[in-house]
Amino acid sequence: MGSFAGGGLPPDDVVVTALRAGDEAMFATLLDTWSGGMLRVARSYVSTDHSAEEVVQDTWLAVIGGIDGFEGRSSVKTWVYRILVNTAKKRGVRESRTLPWSAFEQDGVPVTEFGTGDGWKEAAAVWPSPEGEALASEVRRLIAEALGRLPPRQRIVITLRDVEGCTSDEVCEILEISAANQRVLLHRARTTVRGRLAGYFESVKQPE
């Protein structure tokens, strides 16, 4: 699980006090714990690795500049991720890669794997457990590809929830969407990714 589940951090008040006092070790810990996940989230909005790195860098610079004014109305990580998402959105719009948020309503069209021809029931076989390293890396590659093809809002929600391990409440707060909306986007995204994996496992199935 990604950054949010990466437990080991002290409570927020300790983190905030340390950052305000200029505790470099604490800042380094946050950087190393969260930046990987932040890169993945940034990639949902911008087109290149370089842009994603800049978004994460600009986010941390804003955190450094803003920590004295942090009011603790949300958790530190939610605050950081909100800055990240806002930074990434602006950057994405500038790159014209992402559409304005309001244009994403087309995500609401129920496109599921049911429409792709192979009914889910026929494909509902038992999957091999991805024990082998080769299988695991192939599954990761497929997932990365599937995420890249999702409509933007679905991609950001499934990345925050399932890849980074945010709770439903955290995602709603970061993206300022309702719980119901969040769930619909997440379910569509998961359904698509499951369909992609099912197709793969079907294609590599050993003849019985």
Binding site: M1, A124, V126, V163, R190, L197
Partner: peptide
């Protein structure tokens, strides 16, 4: 089985390649 696959998908999503800031 569909439900188990759904859960397996969620598990697989939570195990991405590690990423690092340059």
């Amino acid at each position: 089985r569909h439900f188990e696959q759904f859960r397996a998908t969620i598990d697989a999503l939570g195990d991405p390649l590690p990423e690092k800031l340059p």
